[in-house]
Simulated assay, not measured.
Amino acid sequence: MSYTPPPRDPKAPPVRVNLLSDTQTRPTPAMREAMARAEVGDEQSGDDPTVHELCGRVAALLGKEAAVFMPSGTMCNVAATLVHCRPGDEILAHETAHIISREGGAHAALGGFQVTQLKGPDGQFTPQTFRAALHPRSRYQPPQTVVSVEQTANIGGGTIWKKTALDEIVQIAKAQGMATHMDGARLLNATVATGIPAAEMTAGWDSAWIDFSKGLGAPIGGALAGSAAFIDEVWRWKQRLGGSMRQAGIVAAACIYALDHHVDRLAEDHANARALARGLSQIQGVEVQEPETNLVFFKPDGAGVSGDKMVGELRKRGVLLAMMDGRIRACTHLDVSAGMIEETVGHVREIVRTA
């Protein structure tokens, strides 16, 4: 099995609608202009003013003392657990969480951590499930050090953790002396959908981060926030992992532009996701999960078309979607218009009709 992504097939049809992921977004012309004008310095030496501005903005946004700019969200998750835990410690997370299913086993490979998988519908576990998974401190069992949630829950369908559940999980964790970590890759989708400010959503969580390369449309980057002492230790791991950068202000400027211009517009992605779900649900035999944010999961099996066949047929028409956890996932973002949603529904209807 190859671990290197193959280059795009030059014979493949041109892409008309890209619903693979919100990571497929391209920097807008205005964002590129902001990047070109960015004031820069050596980020690794603490001399990049644009990176400093971004970190200050994120710390304030999430209600934390400090923040650090990272090349990727995965590095945010990995560095956070490497600070919170010691080898042999146990992390509790949902069985479909990104730290389990999409990070190459980094937490076990780099930190020697055990990740206990908690069950629950729609990518979320209940506070009761979390409490039931706790065990007394004993030399026979690993120390339970961290509980992690993913806001929004990707494989769960882009579902939003309710504030009451987040608060209760924090209370349980603190009573056990555990640290709390929020994978906030799509946290701002949740805040836009609910109207709850990000700082309220992350209140009580020792570490949290946001991604800029998904719905916010920047080319790369995430920012991890927490206490000043925590971020100081994260910097040590950022250095060890090769995440320290030089003139990073060029990409940090894209992230600042995204915070200024691309947060409120996430509501458009949510509206397009609802329109896509509505159109698909009107096709007989297509089972659709009602979206809460910008992710739409559906199964066409009842219409006599397998998910793999549907994805393949759509690709022939220049529409890109992905299979994930046995279902088809469509992800709306700033490069997807309402017209593209209508076109996608039309293609699915045609494929079902000729099946």
Rank of each mutant, 00 (worst) to 15 (best):
T96S: 13
S101D: 11
V58G: 03
L54I: 00
E95M: 11
I155G: 02
T126E: 03
Q124W: 01
P136W: 08
G123Y: 01
P143G: 11
L92M: 15
F113R: 08
A59W: 01
G111R: 01
Q151R: 09
T145Y: 06
Q114I: 14
Q117M: 13
A67E: 09
C76V: 04
F130M: 10
G158H: 14
A97Y: 01
A106Y: 04
I99C: 03
A59I: 05
G73F: 01
H98D: 10
C85N: 14
C85F: 10
A97Q: 00
V146G: 02
L62F: 03
S138M: 10
P143W: 13
F69W: 14
L92R: 05
E65F: 06
G156S: 05
M75I: 06
T152F: 03
R131I: 02
K64F: 04
V83F: 01
T116F: 10
L54W: 06
L92V: 15
M70A: 13
M70W: 01
A66M: 06
M70K: 03
Q124C: 09
A133M: 04
A60P: 05
Y140C: 09
V147K: 05
V78L: 06
L54D: 07
L134T: 04
R86P: 10
H94L: 08
G120T: 09
G112T: 11
I155R: 03
A97I: 06
G123W: 00
T74E: 15
N77E: 06
P121L: 02
A132L: 12
K162P: 11
T159D: 12
G73C: 02
M75P: 10
A93Q: 08
V149Y: 00
A67I: 00
E95A: 13
A79R: 00
Q128D: 13
T126H: 05
V58R: 00
P127N: 07
A67G: 07
T145V: 08
S138G: 09
T96M: 11
L134S: 14
H98K: 07
T152C: 02
V147H: 08
V146F: 02
Y140H: 15
V115F: 07
C55I: 00
V146D: 01
K119S: 15
A93F: 12
T145K: 12
D122T: 08
F69P: 09
P136Q: 05
P87H: 07
G123I: 00
G112D: 06
H94D: 09
K64D: 01
A109C: 01
N154C: 12
N77F: 04
T96N: 13
Q117I: 02
G156C: 08
K64M: 05
